[in-house]
Design a protein around this nucleic acid. Structure first.
Lengths: 235, 235
DNA sequence: CGAGCGCTTGACCGGCGTCAACACCCGTGG
DNA sequence: CCACGGGTGTTGACGCCGGTCAAGCGCTCG
């Protein structure tokens, strides 16, 4: 079960000032002055699903901002099992902890097709002392990562299997269409919730049977939420 | 079950430059210049066990650095159950998230007698832009909070009850005497591990019976670790 | 059409929750 | 000094939820 390291596809150097999602990301508030001080290139990379961005304890020279797609942060437990500690989405920074420590503390794996901006850590460290704007953005990123870690514990890893699955579906709602939730393979869901894949499958079936959700296609990955109140009160 | 708000005891204003644990904390690397720029007082507060430092969603004007003692960060789940999302110890900053958001995202409760330095958030925000030394310390604090949240998920909330209890004991080792681990009430341990207090009690008994740990006093709160290898491999 | 993968479903069993009784420690007050 | 009571921890009996093992289904892709 050695993960296959897939090469990422280099899409060229990007101009952050023209970035389509710039208002969500690290460099959101930077001004001309800040950009002028950048001499290292920011690269645009793509990864296919299941590819590994980096492994635990690896020496780190870059962080990556997610332009689109999702990433799972994974700890490999001694006996070969996989524990998913958090997932990251558009606007999140992958490898944030490496800014402070110089090395990654988890393994990062693409869950979907993934597009990221790769930013040298050295550049972040330079700019964060000279640019209060970046400094503020970084603080926001740290805070939101911590918030999402705490939510992960309180919402997804507490209580019955049924409650966990319900909470995961709620967390995975599409921001643009809040009735639709896109979930993952049953095995990945298990790794997130500390449940076996069969249990996840059973609980999803039960939520469908009870009329709380409904599959919207045959892929078993997208569901419509029919009763959000009952779903959030599942215990 | 309304928590009783205990008044904290004010111990006076402190001089950070003479702090006994200054090398562990937020203001570790500040120089004379930085201290000269401080005009708001840093207060030294004490709390008894079980007292609440602040509650969820409360508006925040201060963070606190722990001089001694421990704090649990708690989410109160809808149906009255208590979920402990993390614990903080000497040198950690309580209420870190409020630096970014202006409000606390958890409830903080003293687990032991507690001594803290109360620092105005405004002061942190001022200094963190002018002092790269504080800025660096803050980054370290964010990183260690995030690391400990991720560890919490991977170590304490994964696998069998026996494994969870074993991991908690390992995490609670005294830094000065690594054979001794100080734990909490069975109910608090349950809140940390997502187990019922009876299960925690049973698993501790089993670890004792199997010769992995041994109680060192009658309080049921301190144990000697007899076989650290076997304890860390418990599955 | 068959192979392979992911998902579902069933039967069975064990681990953990539930409920209850009891032990132990430490105040307080007679 | 002991009696009493409340808080905390332990232990037992029992039942259910979720893990285990296995069979079968449906989709996708050669």
């Amino acid at each position: 079960m050695i993960p296959i390291k897939v090469e990422s596809a280099w899409q060229g150097t990007v101009d952050c000032q023209k970035c389509g999602i710039r208002d969500m990301v690290l460099f959101a508030d930077l001004n001309h002055e800040d950009f002028a001080a950048m001499h290292t290139p920011i690269d645009d990379l793509r990864f296919p699903p299941r590819s590994t961005l980096y492994v635990e304890a690896q020496k780190a020279e870059f962080v990556m901002t997610i332009r689109s797609g999702m990433v799972k942060l994974v700890r490999n437990i001694s006996d070969g099992r996989e524990r998913i500690v958090r997932i990251l989405r558009q606007g999140d920074v992958v490898g944030l902890e490496a800014i402070a420590t110089g090395q990654y503390s988890n393994e990062a794996v693409a869950l979907t097709d993934l597009s990221v901006c790769r930013i040298p850590i050295q550049l972040i460290q330079q700019l964060s002392t000279t640019s209060p704007r970046l400094h503020k953005r970084l603080t926001t990123q740290w805070q939101s990562a911590l918030q999402s870690a705490d939510d992960w514990i309180a919402d997804l890893n507490f209580g019955s299997a049924r409650r966990r699955v319900a909470q995961l579906i709620l967390k995975m709602r599409d921001p643009l269409q809040p009735e639709i939730a896109a979930v993952f393979s049953r095995e990945d869901m298990g790794g997130m919730l500390d449940l076996k894949l069969e249990t996840v499958s059973r609980e999803i079936s039960r939520l469908i049977h009870d009329g709380l959700i409904r599959p919207v296609d045959k892929s078993n990955r997208r569901y419509e939420i029919l009763n959000i109140d009952r779903l959030s009160q599942v215990d």
